[in-house]
Design a binder for these strands. Structure first.
Lengths: 338, 338
DNA sequence: ACGACATTTTAGAGCGCTCTAGATTTTCCG
DNA sequence: CGGAAAATCTAGAGCGCTCTAAAATGTCGT
């Protein structure tokens, strides 16, 4: 308990537990791995002793010996709200399966190659990429790999994502049902995800015979200020104002709302707005945004399971798992008045 | 080269290199560790062979065998711009020293204890905390530990931070020199850092005999919208407007600026604004913010060096390394007109 | 050519664990 | 109650590396 992190001297090892419990190391190993071959009695005893000693297996030794690291490398870029929720989910999912996660950050001066090199030192046996969205991951084909959130065209990479197409379609459809026709889209940067959502928007508009009404305002999607700039640009444009907006994500939707609010434009009275992600931002205080719901924890679980299945050599049916999002209707959408 | 990540079968081991080079494993080990005791000749040969085979030492085996993980655990929370720059710096600094980094994320549902537990499995031998700012880190005293960015009152933790006091003092001083007296502060949440900066502001105002002019507007500091809300609250307040603002950080400063801009308030004509961090945001396109400069890469280097020194048992002079920031003067500050 | 000494190389044990193969105990049934 | 089968336990080699101690080689001065 107290010595959990051994301030003094050596750390608790499997041998310590074995000695204390009066059994062989091998038996302790069996119990710790939850492998078959130990009696209920020894299990309890050993677990109790381990607990008491504050024993935690050494993943280094474990992975060395087992020829399986049981480790998933995770590549991530700038971690916003949504990504943090994903990471959170990955941790829990991995933990439940008895796997470890080792994170590696991608930054401006640290590219995929470097990040992978340092991961490689840990001998991960599978990889999950959260971002940034690249079309051709370096390790595709070399290692079980799942990308989360965007589509990759490679026979050897698995994909777990929310259907941008379906999500945007739901949003547009709902707006159309409310009588909107002039529906604009705030595009968030030039990433693959942003492109996918923009295309989905164009597609959805076409499906409703509203191609003429397509109106796209691009912003960098780096931060909320970009969103505001875009919203302002939209207002300044002397063209007729849209009556509804489908935004790339919640952040940008919120940013746009704040601009509209300042201009005395009522939401949803004058303009309806729909976000994407249904992040904590969407239903925070003072904001109650209609949004397309992604389920990060669910996605994380799928990704981890998939990756583990791959390392086990299991056959998996479909390479791409696409979750169908739902539209969470809140108070930023209403009937068209224009 | 091509087999760097061994798509096929076993990975390249030290023994492979030894065999190929026609020397003993021990010698390869010496060379790879850059330890004394090998001739220049063998060094070159072995390095060449290693390179050719795409050999990378297995950190697991290495740390197991050396009884030193050469691994620094890094705890981080939500990673904004500034934190990403820190992480970036940590990676490079650690790499240069031949140490590894293992990151562990703190999220809403994953607390310090859990994050540490999973780090513990990797047997890190030192810890760096980037956030969130806690007053009493769990592992204080158990392991070399440095916190980055805030002050902790514990004899066993090292601190690397930028002087909030000095930074804010510089900002206030500069504004006073420009003739400002009604200087307000936008406080970013209730974190230790926010509190420290706020207190520094109060202190600085007092030093200039401006205690009566102290005006603090609090916002959550979670995102830029909060900053805007705060700025708007400040404007709505029927009290006399300040002629200058010192913001908690660049994000909030930028958010405030956008509000002021919309209200037709000129910056710096009517109101001067100073940010904190001098992040990329400060000198991006369309914004040219006077800001207090932190040097994340420098901080990272100091933290890594400190932590390594501690594990080596080196005596270090001062527990707290405080960098004196500079004020980077750009175009959001000007003479008082009020 | 020969010790004395420095330099370079190697053998081999061990880090904490896993896992196969074999040893020991328990169970069950005629 | 004997003995085969099942259940439980253990010995020991090995994962890829480090590191101490000892071996091999090289360098000198005389």
């Amino acid at each position: 308990m107290t010595a959990e992190l051994g301030r003094s001297g050596r750390r608790v090892t499997l041998a310590d537990v074995a000695r204390r419990a009066g059994v062989s190391p091998a038996l302790v190993s069996i119990v710790m791995r939850d492998a078959p071959g130990a009696s209920q009695q020894s299990r309890q005893l050993i677990l109790a002793v381990a607990e008491q000693l504050g024993y935690r297996p050494d993943v280094r030794a474990r992975s060395l010996a087992s020829l399986k690291a049981h480790t998933i490398g995770v590549l991530f870029g700038r971690a916003g709200r949504f990504h943090m929720e994903l990471i959170d989910g990955l941790y829990s999912a991995a933990e439940e399966r008895g796997w470890d996660l080792v994170l590696s950050a991608l930054t401006t001066s640290r590219d995929e190659k470097q990040a992978l090199a340092s991961l490689h030192d840990f001998r991960f046996d599978a990889l999950i990429m959260l971002g940034p969205p690249v079309a051709a991951p370096l390790l595709a084909g070399d290692v079980p790999l799942v990308v989360m959130g965007w589509h990759v065209d490679h026979a050897d990479v698995d994909i777990v994502r929310t259907s941008d197409e379906h999500g945007i379609a739901l949003a547009v459809q709902y707006l159309v049902e409310l009588g909107h026709r002039r529906i604009a889209h705030l595009q968030g940067g030039d990433g693959l995800v942003a492109i996918a959502r923009r295309d989905a928007y164009v597609q959805a508009m076409r499906a409703h015979r509203l191609s003429k009404q397509v109106r796209i305002v691009r912003c960098d999607g780096e931060d909320q200020l970009d969103g505001q700039r875009a919203a302002r640009a939209m207002l300044d444009d002397k063209a007729e104002l849209p009556t509804a907006i489908v935004a790339f994500n919640d952040d940008i939707a919120a940013a746009a709302m704040s601009v509209l609010g300042q201009q005395g434009i009522d939401v949803p009275g004058d303009i309806s707005i729909i976000g994407f992600d249904d992040s904590v931002l969407a239903h925070g205080p003072g904001i109650d945004l209609t949004s397309v719901q992604q389920l990060p924890r669910e996605m994380a679980r799928l990704a981890v399971d998939r990756v583990i299945a791959r390392t086990a050599g299991d056959a998996v049916p479909d390479r791409e798992l696409v979750l169908e999002p739902e539209l969470i209707i809140r108070s930023t959408t209403g009937p068209a008045t224009g």
